[in-house]
């Protein structure tokens, strides 16, 4: 793919990320990462609707720019904590889709030997401390990881992803208070996809969202969560600031989940309109926004995107095939790993 990239034809590098120099290839890499997430989630939807996947599936489609923009600003050894809608974070932090699908299907080669599933997928080697099915709980673990990184003087940063629904959890404010007091290297990334499950956040959230971190003296920025360049630019600044010992940051990414709260949430008219969904999908799609910009800048053309998309779809199909063929865990596994 690299050989036919238009990027090679431009002599200058782009200065788009807050004055930082970004190689055009890096933007294409982010496009690829976002498309891989979308393609992964489309396969999940397919597996789920064909009754091949047990349990629940909360799709990240529509929110890809948040996970990718943030994780591209992290090092592999940095930490993230994730949510029940966590496949995107896991992939963006570097997990491999074959072992992810195996986990989602409860198979032995899964990242957690099939014991965690979609809502608890974790990738220790890649710094993913796990998805979490308790809303807001990841904020505590990430703040603890940041505390640990500081004590160990490791230079690591922790990022916690959470939806705007987690703003209703007291734990978040307790750990933000301590993170600010102790200048911990943690960045709070709020994915505001507008809905706490089936309820618009305006019905659950008093005051201004950004006033909450501000009350703890934590710098906060609101970014267009559909624009991966904006997310990346902001995340990079906050993460570097945290790494330099200047304390926590809080990023509110305005975004949208195209599908329901979970795959089974089909009839959504009672809480949001078809028009609203269509508007986000047509006007605010993170993949389209990036490909349009790259095209306008003469950094890439349709052939490049088609190639990336084709490769991603093939990768995900073969990952699904691997998972479907993978064995279930042996019955003896049920009592393993209760204790270390």
């Amino acid at each position: 793919m690299a050989a036919n990239m238009k990027a090679k034809q431009v002599s200058h590098t782009q200065t788009d990320a807050g004055g930082a120099t970004v190689d055009p290839e890096e933007w294409l890499h982010m496009y690829r990462q976002m498309y891989r997430i979308r393609s992964f989630e489309e396969e999940v939807n397919d597996l789920y609707t064909k009754a091949l996947m047990p349990g629940l599936a909360h799709l990240y489609i529509g929110e890809e720019a948040v996970a990718v923009g943030v994780c591209e600003s992290l090092k592999r050894e940095d930490y993230i904590t994730s949510t029940h809608r966590g496949h995107g974070h896991c992939l963006a932090k570097g997990a491999s889709p074959d072992r992810m699908f195996a986990e989602l299907l409860g198979r032995a080669p899964g990242y957690c030997k099939g014991k965690g599933g979609s809502m608890h997928i974790a990738d220790q080697e890649g710094g993913n401390l796990g998805a979490n099915a308790i809303v807001g709980a990841g904020s505590g673990i990430a703040t603890g990881a940041a505390f640990s990184a500081r004590m160990r003087k490791s230079g690591q940063v922790a990022v916690t992803f959470f939806g705007e629904g987690a703003l209703g959890q007291g734990l978040l404010y307790e750990v933000m208070n301590m993170a600010s007091l102790w200048k911990l290297p943690v960045v709070y990334v709020c994915e505001n996809n507008l809905y706490n499950e089936y309820t618009h956040y305006s019905q659950t959230t008093a005051g201004e969202l950004s006033a909450r971190p501000a009350a703890f003296g934590i710098p906060v920025e609101v970014v267009d969560g559909q624009n991966v360049r904006a997310v990346y630019e902001t995340a990079r600044r906050f993460i570097e600031r945290a790494r330099n010992g200047e304390g926590p940051g809080f990023v509110i990414c305005n975004t949208y989940r195209y599908h329901g709260h979970h795959v089974g949430d089909i009839n959504r008219a009672y809480y949001r309109s078809k028009e609203e969904e269509t508007l986000w999908k047509t006007e605010r799609d993170p993949l389209n926004l990036l490909s349009q910009w790259l095209t306008e800048q003469h950094l890439a053309d349709a052939a490049i995107f088609e190639q990336i998309e084709k490769e991603a779809r093939e990768e995900m199909r073969s990952a699904v095939e691997f998972a479907i063929k993978a064995p279930f865990p042996d019955a003896s596994e049920v009592t393993q790993h209760v204790y270390a």
């Binding site: 505590g140 673990i141 603890g144 990881a145 640990s148 007291g170 734990l171 208070n177 301590m178």
Partner: peptide
Amino acid sequence: PGFAAIGVGAAMTGM
């Protein structure tokens, strides 16, 4: 809850 959670995160990452 806050400092218990920080403890859990710290324990998961080597402390």
